[in-house]
C-alpha cells in the first residue's frame, strides 16, 4: 500500500483539529461587530493611506538567490545518500558542484546585492 496515504491522513486530521477549534471559538464567542472594532488596528492611530506598501526589490533578489540554492540542495540529497558507498571521486564531484555555486554567491556579494541598503 502507498505510504503517502498516511501523510494524506495526517493532513486531513491536521486540518480538522484546527478547524474544529476555530468553529468552537465561533460558536461560543460573542458576535457584536461595529465599524470601529472592525477597523484596521494600527496602535490606535487612524490608518493612513493604502495598505499596499511597496516592497524593496531586495526581497526579490533574496528570494531568487534562495531559489537557486534550494534547487542545488535538492540535487545534493541523492548525492549525500550514496556518498558513503562511493569513492573519493563522488566527493570531488560534489565539491565541484558546490564550488561553482559558491562562485555565484561571491559574485552576488561583490555586486553588493546581499547588503540591505
Amino acid at each position: 500500500m502507498n505510504e503517502w496515504i498516511y501523510v494524506a491522513l495526517f493532513m486531513i486530521v491536521g486540518a480538522i483539529i484546527p478547524i474544529g477549534a476555530i468553529v468552537a471559538g465561533f460558536i461560543f464567542g460573542p458576535k457584536k461587530p461595529n465599524p470601529i472594532k472592525q477597523s484596521t488596528y494600527e496602535c490606535g492611530i487612524e490608518p493612513v493611506g493604502d495598505v499596499w506598501v511597496q516592497f524593496k526589490a531586495q526581497y526579490y533578489i533574496f528570494a531568487l538567490v534562495f531559489l537557486v540554492f534550494d534547487v542545488e540542495a535538492v540535487f545534493l540529497f541523492p548525492w549525500a545518500v550514496k556518498l558513503g558507498q562511493l569513492g573519493l571521486y563522488a566527493v570531488v564531484e560534489g565539491i565541484v558542484f558546490i564550488s561553482i555555486l559558491i562562485v555565484g554567491l561571491v559574485y552576488t556579494w561583490r555586486k553588493g546585492m546581499l547588503e540591505w541598503s
Binding site: A21, G25, G29, P30, K32, P35, Q38, S39
Partner: peptide, 12 residues
C-alpha cells in the same frame, strides 16, 4: 478565554 473571545475580522 480564547474560545469565548469575539472572533473579529478586520474591514477589507
Amino acid at each position: 478565554k480564547l474560545i469565548i473571545k469575539e472572533d473579529t475580522t478586520p474591514d477589507g
